[in-house]
């Protein structure tokens, strides 16, 4: 496995350098079975997200229709066509969280951040997402911010949690 993608250097890398790295990935994976998903996965790691122009860049090089690439990107919720914020907030919508206030938390976060689910705030600080059960049902409702889990979240405390980021 290419370890480069793990130590992401997006912030300093130029657009051109990112595309060059994606090109390397394509060269490596192009002729392998089921390579499209692999390539998209790594490209998202390098670029941060998969806007149409990156999809087109990939489609041209693997000689597949753009509509097929975009079909795969939009099929898997893992892929994002919009830029990710510095921090990712995920609200658990497993059954327990949902019935014990998860929905209210989503509503409140949308209000505070002024974005819809799946989108990133104007200042690029937060991306708001939802996810299925994270296994903290006993302490619902739960959210995660990056890798940190917050349990039994009180909607009124959301602002102060966000302030830490």
């Amino acid at each position: 496995m290419n370890t480069q993608t793990k130590t992401c250097t997006c912030k300093t890398e130029s657009e051109h350098e990112k595309l060059e790295r994606i090109e390397e990935v394509i060269e490596e994976y192009k002729d392998k079975e089921g390579s499209l998903i692999q390539i998209l996965h790594m490209a998202q790691g390098i670029y941060g997200y998969l806007p149409l122009k990156v999809q087109q860049f990939i489609a041209e090089r693997i000689n597949k229709p753009l509509s097929e690439v975009s079909g795969v990107v939009t099929f898997y919720s893992y892929f994002s066509t919009m830029p990710k914020g510095k921090n990712t907030i995920r609200v658990c919508l497993g059954t327990a969280c949902y019935v014990r206030g998860g929905k209210k938390i989503i509503e409140r976060l949308k209000e505070i951040l002024e974005v819809d689910v799946g989108a990133t705030t104007q200042d690029g600080r937060f991306t708001l997402e939802v996810m299925r059960c994270i296994g903290a049902c006993g302490l619902a409702p739960a959210i995660t911010i990056n890798d940190k889990v917050y349990k039994q979240v009180n909607p009124d405390k959301l602002r102060s949690i966000l302030d830490q980021y």
């Binding site: 087109q56 229709p65 753009l66 509509s67 690439v69 975009s70 079909g71 939009t74 099929f75 066509t81």
Partner: peptide, 20 residues
Amino acid sequence: GVGVLNAQNRGFMTTVSPAA
């Protein structure tokens, strides 16, 4: 062999459309 149309999105949101 043109490939303009493909399934996009999934579930209830699925459409058969060009990219994006």
